[in-house]
Structure formats: C-alpha cells, structure tokens
C-alpha cells in the first residue's frame, strides 16, 4: 500500500493532502510531512484526508502527534474531509473532534 503526500501553501495556511493508506508502514512519512509543514511556520496547518482509503492506529497516532506538535509550536491544526471508513475509525476512537479543531 502506498501513501502520497503533497503540500500546498496559501496565505496563512499550509495544507498537506494525503492520498492512500495511512498505516504502520506509511505513518512515519505523514508524521514527517506534517512536522515539516508545522516547522515552516504558518499560523495554520490543515491535513486533508479526502483521498485516504484506510487508517489504522499508527495513522491515528501520527495525526495526534501532529496536533500535539502544532499545539506546542502555537499553530492551529485540523484535519478536513475524513470520509467513510476513515471517519468511522476516528469517531469510534474518540479523536474526531479533537483532530477536527
């Protein structure tokens, strides 16, 4: 399973668009991409999950860590467009609201 990441910048927001499956083998890549976005210093970091097909606990942890890092650096962080299976998992594990900002 592969993961692709792209980052776009718009005024005060960096958006990381995630495509594919976020699991044990790809979560670190997401972690790094978002950490790089946070380090870039925008007021706000958005992680777009519209094209994510699968997420497991490693993926959720990567998102929670991202949010934690953003908090520590005083940046806004939120995920957008979790759909289907991804939304269900985030909801069931009680992290959806926390990550949606």
């Amino acid at each position: 399973m592969t993961l692709s990441l792209s980052t776009t910048r718009d005024a005060g927001t960096i958006t990381v668009t995630v495509t594919g499956a976020v699991d044990l083998s790809t979560a670190a890549a997401l972690d790094e991409a978002v950490a790089a976005a946070v380090d870039d210093g925008p007021p706000s970091v958005v992680v777009d999950l519209a094209a994510v097909t699968f997420i497991d606990s490693a993926g959720i942890n990567a998102l929670l860590k991202s949010r934690r890092l953003a908090d520590e650096r005083g940046r806004q962080f939120r995920i957008t467009n979790p759909t289907g299976i991804v939304r269900d998992v985030l909801d069931l594990t009680g992290v959806l609201d926390h990550l949606s900002g």
Partner: peptide, 12 residues
C-alpha cells in the same frame, strides 16, 4: 458497547 471514548494516553 459504544462508550464515549476519551483521547488516547499521551495525546493531549
């Protein structure tokens, strides 16, 4: 049993 889960340990 759909409890309202709170955040994982170490998250926040």
């Amino acid at each position: 049993l759909v409890l309202a889960p709170d955040l994982p340990l170490g998250a926040y």
